[in-house]
Design a protein around this nucleic acid. Structure first.
Lengths: 160, 160
DNA sequence: ATAGAGTATCTTGACGTAGAGAGAAACTCT
DNA sequence: AGAGTTTCTCTCTACGTCAAGATACTCTAT
């Protein structure tokens, strides 16, 4: 009987006509995602970053040398709108972690490049982030993690 | 080999020192929650609501007649800050869906009450929302849903 | 009883960030 | 050359948090 169960029980009492069986799963998924997001955010905040800025830096870092991608490439992996990406790049540029370079092949576009400082920061943050992720999943046993991951993979496939 | 797998493969190539085994599970959970949140939002938007405003209205509705709670009560279930709750109530009050009443027992506080229009709107939205939730979980079989829910329940218990 | 310190409730204001939609510039293709 | 498309930016609006503030309640020591 967790908080979500209590919510379902209230609904059942007030609106017995509603079949709230799907609400439990979706409610738990949402709440869990919020809790985990807050935990993850702390690690980044300690390093002057946020999940949002790390997302961008990490995408550049993962792409390998020379750590350069177009805003469009960055958009493709990060699930945000183009306006939001412009904003994120502005912030990171102000912080000196990325720079905008002219794209010699297409003058509409720009190239976002990690600076040396950006590379250091993202590598440091990634190390701490991965350790923190292990802490966050440690509540589940290895078997539970594997089962959960398999179910999430199947479910996620329905959306992308 | 989904998008998350591709991200993990990139990390492995660039930072083989990192053990990214936890990242897959957490990444899928986050992406899934974002996708589902967007689906859910659509149903509310069609009715002039949002997940945020529905959250407040639904909490009042579920509490049963006379559909009145203090802002503090509302805070306890909705996972937002007090400033955010004040904001949400302001919006709903402007829309005529709730009203602020004096609390006779404690003059610091107020009582948030569903209006007749608010009751209608939340009952209508809840019906549509529940149907939409069923659509959203229909990608999984009943067994998969039960397994996923059980794992999420266990995991969520670690946070609340 | 009651003054005063501490606590609780809610609001406010500053700030950061998200998305939608329009717009500017350059590319592509016929 | 010109229509249509692509890429990125900009503006507007909405909403979240945090920290500080106003007001009222509570509890204790006298």
């Amino acid at each position: 009987m967790d908080r979500v169960d209590r919510i379902l029980a209230q609904w059942h009492r007030e609106r017995p006509d509603l079949d709230v069986s799907a609400m439990g799963l979706l409610g738990r998924l949402g709440r869990l995602s919020t809790h985990i997001g807050r935990e993850i955010e702390k690690t980044f905040a300690e390093r002057g970053l946020s999940s949002s800025s790390f997302d961008v830096l990490a995408t550049l870092r993962r792409s390998g040398p020379p750590y350069r991608l177009s805003p469009g490439d960055l958009l493709a992996t990060t699930m945000v709108s183009s306006g939001t990406m412009t904003n994120r790049i502005d912030q990171l540029e102000k912080a000196g972690l990325v720079e905008r370079l002219d794209n010699p092949d297409d003058r509409r576009g720009v190239i976002i490049a990690l600076t040396d400082e950006g590379l250091k920061r993202v590598d440091d943050a990634a190390t701490a982030h991965v350790a923190n992720q292990h802490r966050v999943v440690s509540e589940l046993s290895p078997e539970e993690r594997a089962n959960l991951d398999a179910l999430l993979r199947k479910y996620l496939a329905a959306f992308e």
